[in-house]
Design a protein around this nucleic acid. Structure first.
Lengths: 229, 229
DNA sequence: TTTGTCTTACATCTTTGGATTGATAAAATA
DNA sequence: TATTTTATCAATCCAAAGATGTAAGACAAA
């Protein structure tokens, strides 16, 4: 049962009152969307989102204050299916990356043509995620750079490769927050044996205690776990 | 000093010989690129990449065998500035995500129009990263889903918010692998004071020892550090 | 067969870590 | 002003962690 005729409802959040008016006018005149509410405050925007449950939110994200990003996060946490489109004056790759990471469905620059904004709204209203080509390119450069850095670190020399398979098991249990007794119980071996393994692990990883061993493991490719308390 | 006139040189890797011929013909007839070599084997492709040092590589990535992805990784590791474009029969989000993560500069489906491929080559040759709109959308859905899973855990209730600023400092030093003495020295306070803080941290985070505290911190938004040994 | 590595295990000893209680002064808050 | 929170420090006490040396059985490689 989809509603075909109802106009999609939009909430505008922008701390610049002038720009807010401009966008509202643009949407009212040149698009088929209903502006149900506007506000210049991020926290007020969250309240209005709860109250009106719009289909879309046009959210201003300013660089210096990170209110905008936090607001996205909180709106996503509400889980009301409200789709957030970022409007920003900055084509900063980090900002784009973080906004998309938090669940924004689109990111459009204020300097772009108004048709671009309307197009983004149409795409997002149709359930898609949309980034202008130029920003997609920026996003991917940032994305690939961040992964490349991860790889080069572990490339130097990974002391983890010197561990025997049993030592890996022990280290894995250490990274879950187990003490000697816990590890002994889980591997069905004596506590003294565990101590032997752990000491060997310290030698091989060149660390002084279990916390450093765990940190080394996590920083060098060991998978993360939930803590077993 | 850029070379304007030289035609960009392309290496083709595709285990389907028929498709390989087709792509070669397409590029030769309809584009301004030079096909310098072709091969049906991924490992041979890496050798040819070293030998010819092409500007671009058109790489076939098949779903079942992950040779293609491994090949991308190895070519990126060579760090010769060779740009890899993925050609695939599958618009699988995970496959797209992994290919881009490993450094592919573009990802085009075999079912797409040949003009699309030429366009991708032009964009990549110009130094950009290019994904067709439809695939960008898929990529972002996958991207956001993977981050959403991470967040739901920490969204419940973050015990870190109960920490005082001093306790945060102490915890931060714990996540760098410091012991009591190390922390005391760095904060210019006595070791017993550090013990008090650490004990309070344990209470607030509901953990039993420093390793669990560190793991909780890392799993709930504390930034990662290098180990200070 | 010998050599070496891995896994298991124990004893001993020292150091570090963690729990608890109590106390003081400054600062924030009601 | 009174109250609470925060940051500082100390003394104990016990448990846990870590260092070191030794050694036996399993197993694989030379």
């Amino acid at each position: 049962m989809r509603e075909f005729k109802r106009k999609a409802r939009v909430l505008l959040i922008d701390d610049n009152a002038d720009h807010l008016r401009g966008v509202k006018e643009l949407i009212t005149l040149e698009s088929s969307y209903d502006v149900v509410a506007t506000t210049t405050s991020a926290s007020m925007g969250i309240n209005l989102a709860k109250k009106y449950r719009p289909d879309l939110i046009l959210m201003d994200v300013n660089m210096p204050e990170k209110d905008g990003l936090q607001a996205i996060q909180e709106i996503e946490k509400l889980d009301l299916g409200i789709r957030v489109i970022c409007l920003s004056g900055y084509d900063d790759a980090d900002l784009i990356f973080r906004a998309m990471k938090l669940g924004a469905k689109s990111y459009v620059l204020k300097t772009m043509a108004s048709a671009q904004l309307i197009y983004a709204m149409d795409e997002v209203a149709a359930g898609k995620i949309y980034l202008p080509t130029a920003l997609t390119s920026r996003f991917f450069e940032y994305f690939q750079r961040s992964f490349k850095e991860e790889q080069t670190v572990s490339a130097e020399e990974n002391l983890l490769t010197y561990l025997t398979s049993r030592e890996e098991e022990v280290l894995d249990l250490l990274t879950q927050g187990n003490n000697y007794k816990g590890i002994a119980g889980k591997l069905f071996i004596s506590e003294t044996t565990v101590k032997t393994h752990v000491n060997n692990i310290f030698q091989k990883l060149q660390v002084n205690d279990r916390t450093q061993a765990v940190l080394y493991a996590l920083n060098n490719g060991f998978k993360r776990h939930k803590i077993a308390v």
